[in-house]
Structures are given as structure tokens and as C-alpha cells.
Design a protein around this nucleic acid. Structure first.
Lengths: 311, 311
DNA sequence: TTAGTGTATGAAACCGGTCCCAGGTCAAGC
DNA sequence: GCTTGACCTGGGACCGGTTTCATACACTAA
């Protein structure tokens, strides 16, 4: 592999001069610049990215921590992230965790080892305290409201949108609202917020009205089965995602039952095809905002407005 | 930032010894090993990834070139890619191109500059010859049949599955098959193969029966409008994706027309909800295979069987 | 006793860049 | 004539690791 020293030797100039040519800096005589450029072309030379990164102390790379990539929720965030990163000349590296704390920790240590300039947690299992502790090794952005904690964050106003959706349903006359969640976990922002919003509109969420463990359409189908066989039943279902809502609805129609009105999330194709209401969290915008926070130095919060779409 | 020299100085041993401890190599006395480890812990030291990458001459990173991330086709491939990379201790960097040749070339030059160990083209605008030319800078994998060209490749047997789907439709009595494509482009493998399969089953594909430029559900809806207003019309539609097929179907039902049978691709939720046939290309498997080829040195081909799902 | 082998260690070259600093030329301004 | 500042150039430290090689010691087999 040819390196900058080869170019220097062959051109007869110093490494410094070659470096100046590479970086289009001032103070290089025109004829030397031309000669160096000619030799670089001739030898098919390209400066080594890794060496530059080492010298510059940055990688122009942002790591994105997520449980898995094949879920529309994360896919949409990633989409926004990748676009914003591209425009800024940064690269996005995908870091799957499958909600494993040990793996999350590994990524935090990679931040420590300067493998990334920043880390974005689209979801997390670690505590916010842990993230803060690693803050000194690089920027860290989370995708939820960190409250008083001093972490950069991009998040949606879930609670407001949940409340308005639930209030709307209540006003329509639906008094027995079932709820579908992915994880029943204190650390999951979505779970916390759903519970809180439900509490404020419908009162305490009983375990009867709750189905936990839904991530996919199939899970939603099982949730549909659960609610269809529940007595007393529910008259509407609030789900943690459109695909899951579609599963709920399909269970009912598959069994010649009238499906309850469903409220989904993310405004995916499935809620359009199944014609139920949904909450669009504008996740691309969330991703873009998260990236901007990752490359800025500040500890700022960025709130993305969610939108309740009635159908 | 504390580095390996600090550890060496503070422990009283040499950099080599510290390096041996870091890398769990033999030939370090137990007490020295213990002392070095203690000091590393005490100083909160982690070796710098970039420096190691420079020294080792590899990054354990694979770049994935794709037009955009927010499309189910690429999302599914990426999913397989990320899983396989994770298991192998590699990282995946997403490289969006929006089909721009200049941007593709930029990524190829980044391969040249050792930013990645390998590059996977899930789709491409550059010619295969161009990819081959860059082959000497690192492994390059494409996701289509490269024919006689000596490139590593993971791809699905599109043609066989298209033919069997079309023959099935023909046997069902559908003689006027409409086709929806994304790009009418020689370089697009999917376009070439669709045309070829159509030719073999239905004969020449006339421009009447073809709608080009569909990527999203909305595009599919417009394709539906096109076919609904076509005289003489079509009696079935072969689409380049389930979401697009769902768009076609929805246009018909929205306008109180009986939708033609539709053949989709990818086996997404939309084809299940709309109950039409589809071809599952097992894209996760494709992604996994592509990753394995990227880290292997060989120029091999891996064929993933596509599956026609009748509904 | 001696040659041979396994273990342990550090000096220094190397990976491939960036950049600070010292030193030199030359023309303009006083 | 002298100072000043803009322009140009190269040496070498530095980023933070890995690895080769020379050396030394302990122990065993001939």
C-alpha cells in the first residue's frame, strides 16, 4: 500500500507539503502542488481514513443503539438518522442489543475507546445514570424525556398524544379500553407513559385490560384472541403499534367478530389498510433531531410533536 | 486521555508488556499481569479502537450501500446483515446513495482508504466492471447474479420464482397481466429479470401493460388508477412489492371496482392484510449470506431460494 | 559440561497520517 | 537600511496502539 511517505519521497518534497496538498491548504507553491497531485494520481493514492481518524481524534461516526433493526419503529428512526448523518458527512453504525444490558455496556465501552464520536440510544436497558456516567467519553443522546437528568434527548410528546387519543375514544363512548404493550418494564419509556396516560383518562389500568409482550403482527393477533375471549370484554383497544393493532383487528374479523375500534401508533401502512386511528410520532424527524444533538455539544432537549390521526 | 504509555510508565513495565496484558497473550509473569490490570482499572483505561485498527490494518466494519433505508426491501436485508455482523463481531455502517453514481463512487473510494473491510451493494448504479476494479481494495459483494463476472454475490432466484408465479396466474386464466416496476433501467436486476420472466410466459411486455416508477404504497395507488382506466384493461397485476400491490388493490376498492388478483413481493404484512399472493425472497437470509461473503475472502455465489406464496 | 528449549521482557520500528514550530525568502512601508 | 508580515518549506513530535527481534534466565537432556 502506498502511503504519504512514498508520495513525499517520490515527489522530492516533505511529508508536510504532501499533507498540505491533500488537505487543500494554503502555502504550497503551485508547481509543487501540481507535481504532488500528479504523483498521487499516478500511484493511485488515497489517504488512509483510519490514520486520519487517529490523528484527528474523531471518527465522524455515530453509533445507534437499538434492540433490533427489523421493526418499523426503529427503521423509521434510523431512516431519519441516516439522512441527517449523510448530509453532515457522518456515518451511522448500527448496534443491535436485543435489550441485553451486557451488550449495551459493550457499546458504551466502545464509545470510551473512541470507536464513535457519539452514541444514540433509541431504546435502552441501562439506567439513565449509567448513560450519564459515560457522558464524559462522548456525546450521548437518548430518545425519551430524561426529566431532570442532564442528558441530550430527542423525544416525542407521547403523553399528550396518548391522552388526547384516549380522551377522544372516551368521548366517542368507549369506556372499556384494552391496552397492548411490548414490555411491562419500568425502564421502557413507552410503557411508563402509556400507563400514566391511561391512568389520567380511564383510571387505574387493571391487568385484565392489559396484554403484554406484543412486538409483531402475530403478537397482536394473540392479543386479539385474548381480548376476544375476555369477559367482561373491552370495547376498544389501544396498541403500541399499527402492525400489532392490525393483528388484533384481524383476529376478530377472522373469527367473524366485529372488531373493536383500535388505536395504533406510527401511522404505518397497516393502519391505513385496516382503517383505524393512529398516532404518528414523526419518527424520521425524531431521528434527524437525535443526530443533530449527537454532533452538537450541548445538552439540549428536542421535542417532536406527535399527531393523532382519526379514522 | 490515558494511553498505553501512561500505563507502562506507571506500572514500571514496558509498553510491550502492557500490550501483552491487554491482548491476553502468553509470556507475562502473573504478578506483572495483575499489577498492570490493576493500574488499568484504576486509571479507567480502555485501549483506543482507532489506533488498534490502524495497527491491525482492519476495521471490522462492513459498509452497506443502498439507495435508501426506509424501504422494506432494504430494511429486511439490513436486518439479516446486522444480525450476522453482530454474531461475527463486526459492525455495519449504512451508506445511502439515492441511486447517485457520484455518491456510490465516494463509498468505493472510502473502501480504498481502508474505512471498511468490505462493501456490500444491495443495489447499485455503478457497473459491475467498476465494482470489479475496486475489488483489489477490499471484498465487494453484490446482491444480484453477476453472471460470469468474478464478483462475490448473494442473490435470490428471482427469475425462477417470477416465472412460476406468472405461470400459475396464467393457469388460473389470467391472460392480460399488468406489471409494476420501480425503475425502467438496464442496470436494475429486478427490472431485467421481470422483463425476461414476463417475456417467457406472456411474450413481449408492451408499454401499455407496464407502469414504471413505483416505490411506495402511494405509487401503487397511482398504478392502480392507471390500470383501472386502461382499455383494454388487465385482469391481474404483477407488482414489485407488497406495499405497492396494496396500493393497486386499494385504488380499485376505493372506487367500487373489483380489484384484479395481485402478485406482490417480499411477503410483507400488507399482502397478508390484503390477501394477495406474494413472493418471499427471504431477504434476511440474503443479508446474512451477503455478510458471510463479505468477510470470507472467496469469490463465491450464494443463491437464496425464493418462495411463491399463493393466496 | 554443554547445547537446546521454553519463558519472560523491553527497545524500537511500524501502521499512516496531522500539525507545531523553526527557518528562510521576498516585497512593502517607514 | 531595517522592520514587518505574507508566503513557503521541512523536521520531527504526536495520535495510540502492535509486533519483531534481541537478550536473558531457568531448566532439561545428552
Amino acid at each position: 500500500m502506498t502511503n504519504i511517505h512514498d508520495i513525499a519521497r517520490l515527489s522530492g518534497y516533505s511529508v508536510s507539503t504532501v499533507s498540505r496538498v491533500i488537505n487543500h491548504q494554503k502555502y504550497v507553491a503551485d508547481e509543487k502542488r501540481a507535481k504532488v497531485e500528479a504523483i498521487m494520481r499516478q500511484l493511485d493514492y488515497v489517504p488512509n481514513r483510519v490514520a486520519r481518524n487517529l490523528s484527528n481524534g474523531q471518527t465522524k461516526t455515530v453509533g445507534v443503539v437499538m434492540p433490533y433493526a427489523n421493526h418499523p419503529y426503529f427503521a423509521r428512526i434510523i431512516d431519519g438518522l441516516v439522512s441527517a448523518a449523510f448530509e453532515a458527512g457522518y456515518k451511522i453504525t448500527l448496534l443491535p442489543t436485543n435489550y441485553d444490558l451486557t451488550i449495551e455496556r459493550r457499546y458504551l465501552d466502545q464509545l470510551r475507546s473512541k470507536a464513535y464520536d457519539a452514541l444514540i440510544f433509541t431504546s435502552r436497558s441501562s439506567s439513565l445514570e449509567t448513560l450519564e456516567r459515560y457522558r464524559k467519553y462522548g456525546q450521548i443522546v437518548c430518545c425519551e424525556d430524561p426529566g431532570e437528568r442532564p442528558l441530550a434527548a430527542a423525544y416525542t410528546d407521547r403523553e399528550a398524544s396518548y391522552i388526547s387519543a384516549l380522551k377522544w375514544a372516551q368521548a366517542q363512548g368507549y369506556q372499556k379500553m384494552g391496552v397492548v404493550l411490548s414490555r411491562n418494564n419500568v425502564i421502557s419509556a413507552s410503557t411508563r407513559v402509556t400507563r400514566s396516560a391511561y391512568q389520567q383518562v380511564y383510571g387505574k389500568l387493571t391487568s385484565q385490560h392489559l396484554f403484554v409482550g406484543a412486538v409483531t403482527y402475530e403478537d397482536g393477533y394473540r392479543a386479539g384472541e385474548y381480548f376476544a375471549n375476555l369477559t367482561p370484554g373491552v370495547d376498544a383497544v389501544f396498541t403500541n403499534g399499527d402492525d400489532i393493532g392490525a393483528g388484533v383487528q384481524t383476529y376478530f374479523t377472522d373469527h367473524q367478530l366485529t372488531p373493536p375500534p383500535i388505536i395504533g401508533q406510527e401511522n404505518l401502512l397497516s393502519s391505513r389498510l385496516c382503517q383505524f386511528s393512529t398516532i404518528d410520532h414523526h419518527l424520521e424527524a425524531l431521528g434527524r433531531a437525535a443526530f443533530k444533538l449527537a454532533t452538537g455539544q450541548t445538552t439540549t432537549h428536542k421535542l417532536i410533536k406527535s399527531e393523532f390521526i382519526r379514522r
